Amino acid sequence: MQTNPASSAPAYTSLVALGDSFTEGMSDRLPDGSYRGWADLLAARMAAVTPGFRYANLAVRGKLIQQIVDEQVDRAAAMGADVITLVGGLNDTLRPKCDMNRVRDLLTEAVERLAPHCEQLVLMRSPGRQGPVLERFRPRMEALFACVDELAARHGALVVDLYGAPALGDPRLWDVDRLHLTGEGHRRVAEAVWQALGHEAEDPEWHLPPEATLPPHWAARRVEDVRFARRHLLPWIGRRLTGRSSGDGLPPKRPELLPFETA
């Protein structure tokens, strides 16, 4: 880590991001069909103020906390980055059967293995979209976030509270699949982490919802519900029933800690 004489914030020289689809960047789609997401946006900001900044993103969509521990944690620890972000366990809470004691144990293992190998570990209370899915799984999610808070206090990690941000519960910041944030949602997450790392706010009101708009008519909502069920919900249920994941066979998008070139 370098010092930055022009700012009170530490000039971190490297970032490694771990996790699932949230950190991979779904559904912040670029014109070429790839995903950007909050971690890429954060890396671009950090690279703009720190020459030679390096970035790796090991996240892969669909990963459970056991897979994150097995496939990403040791690899990230060996990179020796200044900042490591870890967001995991939410996919577990959305499964029909979820052993929360095991999820907590695995998250604890991940944090204990990562914390000694970075200057700053960043954990998050993941965002939750308002609606029936959130209400159904809220007790599990909040149990997960209580574990995140306990681990952060024990290991000196930062906690970025996205769950408590009204903006990130607003359905307008979620993609049509109702599982992933839009590009605007990812921008706000990047802003939240940027500020948590000690940088001056570019958007002090990132946590506030967009200006009110007229809700869609009943008929339009029903058409969207049918489209959502056909394109997203039924395939998701099919993968759960067959034990498959959307990330099966996919590699991380940035598997090595390499210089990040800003546009």
Results as ranks from 00 to 15, higher is better:
2 Q>K: 12
2 Q>W: 09
5 P>M: 08
6 A>C: 06
8 S>E: 14
11 A>I: 02
11 A>Q: 10
16 V>D: 01
26 M>L: 14
31 P>H: 05
31 P>A: 11
33 G>M: 08
35 Y>E: 09
36 R>I: 02
41 L>V: 06
52 G>D: 04
53 F>Y: 05
54 R>K: 14
54 R>L: 02
59 A>D: 00
68 I>S: 05
68 I>D: 02
73 V>S: 00
74 D>A: 15
80 G>Q: 10
80 G>R: 06
81 A>M: 11
81 A>G: 11
82 D>I: 06
84 I>E: 00
86 L>R: 04
89 G>K: 02
89 G>M: 04
91 N>K: 04
96 P>K: 08
96 P>L: 10
99 D>R: 09
105 D>C: 05
106 L>D: 06
108 T>G: 15
109 E>Q: 15
111 V>L: 11
112 E>S: 13
115 A>I: 12
117 H>D: 11
128 G>L: 13
128 G>A: 15
138 R>P: 03
141 M>A: 13
146 A>H: 10
159 V>P: 01
159 V>C: 06
159 V>D: 04
162 L>D: 00
164 G>S: 08
165 A>H: 03
170 D>C: 10
171 P>G: 09
171 P>Q: 10
172 R>Y: 07
173 L>F: 10
175 D>S: 15
181 L>K: 06
181 L>Q: 07
185 G>N: 03
187 R>C: 09
187 R>S: 12
189 V>Y: 00
189 V>N: 00
190 A>Q: 02
190 A>S: 12
191 E>W: 03
193 V>R: 00
196 A>Y: 07
197 L>D: 04
199 H>T: 06
213 T>M: 14
214 L>E: 15
215 P>F: 03
216 P>I: 09
220 A>Q: 15
222 R>A: 13
228 F>N: 04
229 A>L: 11
238 G>I: 03
239 R>F: 07
239 R>N: 10
241 L>T: 11
242 T>K: 11
248 D>Q: 11
252 P>K: 05
253 K>G: 07
254 R>G: 00
254 R>L: 08
256 E>Q: 13
259 P>K: 06
